[in-house]
Write a protein that binds this DNA or RNA. Sequence first.
DNA 1: TTAAGTGCAAAGGATTTGCAACAAA
DNA 2: TTTGTTGCAAATCCTTTGCACTTAA
Lengths: 130, 130
Amino acid sequence: MLKRSKQRESIKKFLISRYDHPTAETVYMNIKEEFPNISLGTVYRNLSLLADIGEIQKLSTGIGPDRFDGNPKPHYHFICKECGSVLDLNVTGLDHINVLAAQDFDGEIEGHVTYFYGKCSSCKAKRQTS
Amino acid sequence: MLKRSKQRESIKKFLISRYDHPTAETVYMNIKEEFPNISLGTVYRNLSLLADIGEIQKLSTGIGPDRFDGNPKPHYHFICKECGSVLDLNVTGLDHINVLAAQDFDGEIEGHVTYFYGKCSSCKAKRQTS
DNA sequence: TTAAGTGCAAAGGATTTGCAACAAA
DNA sequence: TTTGTTGCAAATCCTTTGCACTTAA
């Protein structure tokens, strides 16, 4: 079970090459150059599958459609309220966060997702006033 | 501008009375008891408006439809992977998180949202094995 | 050979929107 | 009055799905 497919491999390779966390639609447009007949359904299917087996990450930012990250390792993201861009964030010293959350909680905490919000550097430069 | 409306007030009051972070659909069903003719569109409009002016919070968990929280103050949430319930989480000692994130970042960090994932206490009790 | 993957198109769920009627200020 | 708000229905956006065909193993 789980055969390889050229389409899936292309999607994964594409995601690894990008650092802007593209949407399914963007993936679709780009994979089309190599596979002109690929369908959006196939893109969605493969993105879900890759996320399920932990080879990529799905980002639900709450703003617009889901985005996808070719880097499967846990890390943090920043979302610019101004332009909507999603950036990787290098945050260290947050490993204890699950422990802190577990302190006052009866269930079992397996992980967490954090999105930081604000203004990216270029939007910040554009206007000093809010 | 911004007139009061009985519908909006009822929606807010309802949200404040609930601690399970209901969806728009659930809000709709409940408000219908007081306003049988209210439409789902009105519910969505008011939920968006209330979230925009900071009187409630919209929660985009990445699982299912958005949920709404009558408590506008920043706090943390836990999502049970098993049953899908969304619980408030009392986490202290995380005030420095924005500062940590800003350390290696040129833009401006205004806030963050964190969702913890795992098994809630009752789902944990149901089966010891994963 | 056979089970997984694909393309296509239709369906689905969640949310938004245009508009005429209504209600708050 | 004036302008925000509503109910209704249609539209839109994003994502999933059924099915017959194709392809990897």
